[in-house]
Design a protein around this nucleic acid. Structure first.
Lengths: 213, 213
DNA sequence: CTCTTACTGCAACAGTTGTTGCGTTAAGGT
DNA sequence: ACCTTAACGCAACAACTGTTGCAGTAAGAG
């Protein structure tokens, strides 16, 4: 029973359930296609990303890809999930401001990457494919929950009040960076990130006042 | 002479330049198509929004639409521009907090509309069509500049420091609402909007400290 | 080694999306 | 009323997108 093929962590990877007992060369094909999809996303981003393009690049027949993934969005999301698992670590520097500064810096650096840009692009607005949209929401939820640790540690230290809703606080921490970089497409240099950090920390502190009404 | 058909304000409407001297039934066709596009967006949103669908609904031949607009994104953006001009007013209540609260409330209400949801959806992430993407950025830029008035009045009143960069401040004001409602798809009730307002105002105040380095 | 089973490639097909050439139509100027 | 001219409808077409049936093939079980 230890033989079940689930990945190291119970990550949310893989829309195509690897659950069923393979009776074919599933794993190899999957890897080849997803690698090709990543390559395609690296040069060209989402523009020109299509099932046909990935099929041509991978050598796998289009019909196979359609059968396993179905839509371009599902394929892109599934390919990215494989690589974003490593993602960005949650800092623990001992103070809220430095935690936030480091997290924002890491995020900005990631979104500066070609791959990160695509991930950010897909992350910001709803997707048309229901399955892909479900994964997007799950990803955000997972991610925000992880970041809540920063807020909870700050509350434990007494840096912020204990009445702050962690989820709202996390949103406040991340919102301006995402609007600035991903929605508006502007760069985020060090002074900008410093300013975002100051603003974010102040916002979280303000959420304490009379929060639970 | 009062008969000129240009809209009240020299809005950025219309990707299709109405500049050239019309030798055909330009204006009528344009209106019919854009009205049909809005209808199509109202029921169905961006899903199922295609040139073909709008052609069928408007009775205008698809080839005509392709010639004038080219892509689905350009058509959608152009149709929406016609209706978003009325948009959301910039409040002037005499205090920063109440200005922000009203603006956030108006925005949340607008995004709760079917039309507003589509606008918000298109606003959050880059568009693939270059022309449509240009309009998106222009719209953001225009909008943010308008909102700067709130910040500048607050600075004039002494509510916030004069070293605050208005553009950063405006981003800080709007960021959490957009992340919460448009990216995450969550509702924004009154208490939530109150909390966003408190956080946003605190964030703007924090931007003052040592802002210009 | 053989059998089962699932997945793949291939080819044929259907639907949608976007393009182009041509004759026709209507708006605005004279 | 007439002429010019841009825009439109139509049809034919090209390209891309997605689906389906069938035969072949590889992985895992006994």
């Amino acid at each position: 029973m230890g033989a079940n093929p689930t990945p190291p962590r119970p990550s949310l990877s893989s829309l195509t359930s690897p659950a069923a007992r393979p009776g074919g060369r599933t794993a190899r094909t999957r890897k080849v296609v997803l690698d090709a999809a990543i390559e395609q996303l690296l040069d060209g981003g989402l523009v020109g990303f299509s099932v046909g393009a990935v099929a041509a690049r991978s050598g796998v027949h289009p019909s196979t890809i359609y059968r396993r993934w179905g839509t371009r969005e599902r394929l892109a999301v599934d390919a990215l999930l494989d690589r974003v698992d490593a993602a960005i670590p949650i800092p623990d520097t001992g103070a809220l401001a430095t935690d936030v500064r480091q997290l924002l810096g890491d995020l900005a650096a990631f979104y500066g990457t070609r791959l990160g840009a695509v991930v950010g692009h897909l992350a910001m607005a709803p997707l048309e494919d229901p399955a892909a949209e479900g994964v997007r929401q799950l990803l955000w939820d997972t991610r925000l929950r992880e970041v809540e640790a920063i807020v909870e540690r700050a509350a434990a230290r007494g840096e912020i009040g204990r009445r702050v809703d962690p989820r709202s606080a996390v949103e406040a921490l991340l919102a301006q960076l995402h609007l600035h970089v991903l929605t508006l497409g502007h760069p985020a240099d060090a002074p900008t990130l410093d300013a975002f950090t100051r603003a974010a920390v102040a916002a979280v502190r303000a959420l304490d006042d009379a929060e639970p009404r």
